[in-house]
Amino acid sequence: MSAVPLTHVLMLSAILFTLGMAGLLTRRNLIFMLMSLEVMFNAAGLAFIAAGARWGQADGQIFFILILTLAAAEVGVGLGLALQIHHRFRTLDMDKVCELKETEP
């Protein structure tokens, strides 16, 4: 019976985090950017769980619960913001929302 090595779980976590970051950097739709953020939160939680399981401590799961509350609060505010932006600008394209006077690409 072989347990799962910590290195491989951390590699999976890094791959998922990189995929989420690639999505965040390439997609311009606010909904897709929020989804990529969720993927990144999830990858960070996976790293915490893996470390907690490696040393048999409960701290990893506690930090996963804290990440869960953070993600829930972030999704609530982010989706409210998405509704508001869609209402005002009639688009979810983040390059079109230039209220801070940045230059439109």
Binding site: A72, A73, G76, V77, G80, L81, L83
Partner: peptide, 8 residues
């Protein structure tokens, strides 16, 4: 988060 989402 609750207050922020409600406000938005």
């Amino acid at each position: 988060g609750l207050v922020g989402a409600y406000h938005l």
